[in-house]
Computed example of a mutant assay.
Amino acid sequence: MLDALEVLTVVSFGVMVGVEFSVAFVMNPIFKGLPEDSGQLGRAHGGRMLGAVMPVWYFSSLALVVVWAVAGWHDQGVGLVVASGVLMVVSVVMSLLVLVPINNRGKTWTPENRPADWKQQTDTWDRYHYVRVAVLIAALVLLVAALV
């Protein structure tokens, strides 16, 4: 049963990290390259769509890590699982303090109502998102290492 939990956790978390990676290194560069207002509209739509899904995914992945740590408390790799959970908490806190407020503003922007500094705000979001992706990748590596 613990093996199934470990696999479910790694797969669920790994796919989530893949989505975040693709936002940083695929989607946002595509949006930046689109003509006129298309990129900003794409980011706003992505912010609405992923803003609805990602909180559930983050917290369910974190819950799976907690259950894994508790269920495997006496196993050899539990320290790595706990460390991964700590990094996940760091990413959630960083998201709530910095990324979510910018995203909540950006997902309502249109070419008619966006603020004058919208590009600076999206650039700030991008920089923090790169850090979040790095933290999430480190957390995923720790989970995978706990399996071996």
Rank of each mutant, 00 (worst) to 15 (best):
G47S: 07
P55M: 03
Y128D: 03
Y58N: 14
L136R: 08
L41T: 14
Q121P: 00
V15F: 15
M1E: 15
M1W: 12
A63Q: 08
A138N: 07
L8K: 01
G39A: 04
A145Y: 00
V23P: 00
E20H: 12
V26R: 04
L140M: 04
M88S: 09
S95M: 14
G18L: 02
V11T: 09
N28I: 12
V53D: 01
D3M: 06
T110C: 05
Y128H: 14
I102C: 07
A4V: 11
A83F: 04
D37T: 12
L140C: 05
L97E: 12
Y130R: 10
Q40P: 03
Q120C: 03
F59Y: 09
I102N: 04
Q120A: 06
V89T: 09
V89W: 00
I30F: 12
S84V: 01
L147E: 13
R114P: 01
G39S: 02
A146T: 01
D123K: 11
I102A: 10
D123C: 05
D117V: 07
K32R: 04
E6T: 01
M27T: 10
W73L: 14
R132A: 05
G72V: 07
G46I: 12
L2A: 13
V144G: 07
M94E: 10
D126E: 10
V10A: 02
R48Y: 05
G79N: 00
Q121I: 00
G106C: 13
G47V: 01
K107M: 14
S95Y: 14
W68M: 15
G79P: 02
S95Q: 14
V11C: 08
L96H: 14
V10H: 00
V144M: 14
M88R: 01
I102Q: 07
F13Y: 15
